[in-house]
C-alpha cells in the first residue's frame, strides 16, 4: 500500500534526481576530442575514456586546481559552519528571552537570510572594495577582492552574516518547545544559568541543532554564488568545487565538468551519511515517532488489560 501511495513521488524523484545523476556519471566517462581540420573547422567526436577524467583530477595542472578547489571547499565549510553554529546559538539564546521589541528583533534577524545570495554578494562587494566601508572603518588598505587570504576572509564574513540567522531561527524553534517547568525545577534545585544551558537547553536542543548544522554543511559544500559574485570567477583563493565544475562546462568540456560534479556529489553524500550515522542527526523525525509509538503501544496495552 505504502509503495502504491509513494510511487508518484518516487517517479518524480527518479526523473529529476536519478536520471540526471546517471547521465552525469555517464557523461564523465567521455571526453570531447576536438581538433581543427585544414579549413579551420572543428572536427569533433566523443571518445570513451573510462576513468581518465577522474585520474586527471590528481595529476598536473588540472590536479592542482582540483586539490585547491577541494581544500577551499572544505576550509569554507568547516570555518563558516563552525562560526555560524556558535553565532546562531547566541542569537537563539538572545531571542528566546522575553523582552520589549522581541518580535522586531526576530523579524530583523531574518533579513540577511531573506536577501538572495547574489544580491548579498554584490552588497558585500561594495563594502569590501578598496575604497569601501570595510577599509575606511578599519583604517586599512586591504585589497579584499584581490587574490589572497583577505578574499577568503571576506567570503567567510559574508557567508556567516547571511546564514547564522538560519541556524539561529531553527534553534530558537527547538528552544521554544522546551517546557518552562524544567527550568523552574532547575532553579529550585539551585542550578545557575550556565548549568541550565549545559544540562537542559543544549541537550534538548541538540536534535534540532544537528539537523540545522547538517543542512548548512550540505549547502556550504555546494557554495558557488557568493564567492563568484563577491570575489569573481577564476580567483584561485576562493575557487570552490562547484565553481570549477561551472568553469569546465563553460569551456564546453562536459566530461571533466561532470567528473568534478560527481566527485562533489560523492563528497556531499559521504559527509551527509557520516553525519547521520555518527552524530545521529534525526532528519525525518523517525526517532521521536518511534518513542511515541512505543508509548502508544504501552498505553494501549494498559487500556486492554
Amino acid at each position: 500500500m505504502a509503495a502504491m501511495l509513494l510511487s508518484p513521488t518516487l517517479l518524480v524523484l527518479a526523473l529529476v534526481i536519478v536520471y540526471p545523476l546517471i547521465s552525469a556519471v555517464h557523461q564523465s566517462l567521455f571526453s570531447a576530442e576536438s581538433g581543427l581540420d585544414a579549413d579551420g573547422f572543428v572536427t569533433e567526436g566523443e571518445a570513451f575514456v573510462g576513468l581518465a577524467n577522474y585520474a586527471d583530477l590528481f595529476v598536473g595542472e588540472s590536479g592542482r586546481r582540483f586539490l585547491n578547489a577541494f581544500s577551499n571547499t572544505t576550509f569554507f565549510t568547516v570555518t563558516t559552519v563552525l562560526l555560524e553554529t556558535v553565532l546562531g546559538l547566541c542569537l537563539a539564546l538572545a531571542m528566546n528571552r522575553a523582552f520589549r521589541g522581541r518580535a522586531f528583533l526576530r523579524a530583523s534577524i531574518l533579513v540577511p537570510w531573506a536577501v538572495p545570495t547574489a544580491v548579498s554578494g554584490l552588497l558585500w562587494r561594495w563594502i569590501f572594495q578598496s575604497d569601501g566601508i570595510a577599509n575606511s572603518l578599519l583604517g586599512s588598505e586591504i585589497l579584499w577582492t584581490a587574490e589572497g587570504t583577505a578574499s577568503k576572509l571576506a567570503v567567510i564574513i559574508a557567508e556567516v552574516w547571511k546564514t547564522a540567522p538560519f541556524i539561529g531561527l531553527l534553534v530558537l524553534a527547538g528552544m521554544q518547545i522546551i517546557p518552562e517547568e524544567v527550568y523552574e525545577a532547575a532553579k529550585i534545585d539551585g542550578a545557575g544559568w550556565w548549568r541550565q544551558l549545559g544540562s537542559i537547553t543544549l541537550p534538548l536542543v541538540k536534535p534540532t541543532l544537528l539537523v540545522a548544522v547538517l543542512f548548512r554543511m550540505l549547502d556550504a559544500l555546494r557554495m558557488f554564488d557568493l564567492p563568484f559574485v563577491l570575489i569573481g570567477p577564476g580567483k584561485e583563493s576562493v575557487e570552490t568545487l562547484s565553481m570549477l565544475a561551472w568553469d569546465e562546462s563553460n569551456q564546453l568540456r562536459y566530461g571533466s565538468a561532470s567528473a568534478f560534479a560527481v566527485v562533489l556529489f560523492l563528497y556531499v553524500a559521504v559527509v551527509a551519511i557520516v553525519f547521520v550515522k555518527v552524530l545521529g542527526a534525526d532528519v525525518t523525525g523517525t526517532k521521536k515517532l518511534g518513542i511515541k509509538r512505543k508509548a502508544n503501544r504501552s498505553q494501549k496495552a494498559e487500556a486492554t488489560r
Binding site: L218, A245, A261
Partner: peptide
C-alpha cells in the same frame, strides 16, 4: 546532494 550535480551536469 544532487542539486549540485543537476546544476552542473553537462
Amino acid at each position: 546532494a544532487a542539486v549540485s550535480l543537476t546544476a552542473c551536469g553537462g
